[in-house]
Simulated scan of single mutants.
Amino acid sequence: MKRRWQLFWVLEIALLMVLGYQIVQNTASLIGVLTGACALLLGIKGHFWRAFWLTLGTILMVVGVFLIPTIWIILFVALIGALFAMSGKQGGRLPWLQKQYWAVRTKAPVPKAGCTTHHAWFGDEHIGGQTFEWDDINMTLIAGDTIIDLGNTLLPPGDSTIVVRKGLGKTRILIPVGVGVMVDHATLAGTLTINGTEHSLHNEAVKHYSDDYDTAARRVHILTNVIVGDLEVLSV
């Protein structure tokens, strides 16, 4: 959590620096900000038409700043940070802070006819309450924590695939011992943890193979793309 707040403040400061540079480069915005600052100064220091100068200065500065599109990105990032802060006080009730848990149990194969699976936008979905035939997992999520538990699953011989695309949040995948694993993970910021070994990533992609990948009768390919978040792969 501390690392996320550090990333938040670094991003906000960087965006503010970009905003300042763009204001200087934009003549209309610069005139508005400077004129507004002068009007505010007159309102604070002066004793006549004080309310007028303060109001005029505020309006000119707001208009000058909002001429730059970067301010909307700054406000959006600030909103996300405020929602995370509120979630800590409210017990983590925001939808993307809820857990998404997959506990896969298999049954005998049936003739294939194709299917369509609906996934939640956020990590508030519980899957695994019923027995179903193993099928590759392909999911997209805006934000939230996801747990995929294959610990009690008898995977079919050969290769199986898990694909996860996510905006924000942590993903944890539990793999049965004896199953070969290939992890192909890409993220802008986060950590990759494989059986306790942690790697910090910054706009990087990592491909990892387990020691028994070439000899294992059953193998799982894990393909993940996350904007900001952690991935943990653990043998159980």
Score class of each variant (00 low, 15 high):
62 V>M: 01
62 V>E: 00
64 G>M: 09
65 V>C: 01
65 V>F: 03
65 V>L: 11
67 L>Q: 15
68 I>Q: 10
68 I>K: 01
70 T>A: 14
71 I>K: 03
71 I>P: 00
72 W>I: 07
72 W>D: 00
73 I>M: 12
74 I>Y: 09
76 F>E: 07
77 V>R: 00
77 V>N: 05
79 L>A: 14
79 L>Q: 03
80 I>E: 01
82 A>E: 08
83 L>P: 01
84 F>G: 02
85 A>D: 06
87 S>I: 06
87 S>W: 10
88 G>A: 10
88 G>M: 08
91 G>D: 03
92 G>K: 04
92 G>D: 11
96 W>A: 03
97 L>N: 11
97 L>T: 08
97 L>K: 07
98 Q>M: 09
99 K>E: 13
100 Q>E: 07
100 Q>P: 00
102 W>R: 04
102 W>C: 04
102 W>A: 02
103 A>G: 12
103 A>S: 08
105 R>K: 10
105 R>W: 02
106 T>M: 01
106 T>W: 00
106 T>P: 01
107 K>I: 13
108 A>E: 14
111 P>K: 09
112 K>Q: 14
113 A>F: 06
115 C>K: 12
116 T>V: 14
116 T>N: 12
116 T>M: 08
116 T>W: 10
117 T>L: 15
118 H>T: 12
119 H>F: 13
120 A>G: 11
120 A>V: 06
120 A>T: 13
122 F>E: 05
122 F>V: 10
123 G>F: 05
124 D>A: 11
125 E>C: 01
125 E>G: 04
129 G>N: 13
129 G>D: 12
129 G>V: 04
131 T>V: 12
131 T>K: 08
132 F>M: 11
132 F>R: 13
135 D>T: 10
136 D>R: 05
136 D>W: 01
137 I>G: 05
137 I>A: 08
137 I>V: 15
138 N>S: 11
138 N>M: 01
138 N>L: 08
139 M>Y: 01
139 M>R: 15
140 T>N: 11
143 A>V: 06
144 G>C: 09
144 G>H: 04
144 G>E: 01
145 D>H: 11
147 I>R: 09
148 I>Y: 05
148 I>N: 10
148 I>V: 14
150 L>F: 15
151 G>C: 15
152 N>W: 02
152 N>D: 15
154 L>Q: 05
155 L>T: 03
155 L>Y: 00
156 P>A: 07
159 D>V: 13
160 S>E: 04
161 T>A: 14
161 T>I: 14
161 T>R: 15
162 I>A: 02
163 V>W: 02
164 V>T: 12
164 V>F: 12
165 R>P: 00
168 L>D: 00
168 L>A: 12
168 L>I: 11
169 G>A: 02
170 K>T: 14
172 R>F: 06
173 I>N: 03
175 I>C: 05
176 P>Q: 07
178 G>F: 11
180 G>C: 07
182 M>D: 09
184 D>A: 07
184 D>S: 10
187 T>C: 09
187 T>F: 04
187 T>M: 02
193 T>P: 03
193 T>E: 15
194 I>T: 01
196 G>M: 04
196 G>N: 08
196 G>H: 10
197 T>A: 10
198 E>C: 14
198 E>W: 00
199 H>K: 13
199 H>G: 00
200 S>K: 14
200 S>Q: 12
201 L>V: 10
203 N>Q: 02
203 N>T: 13
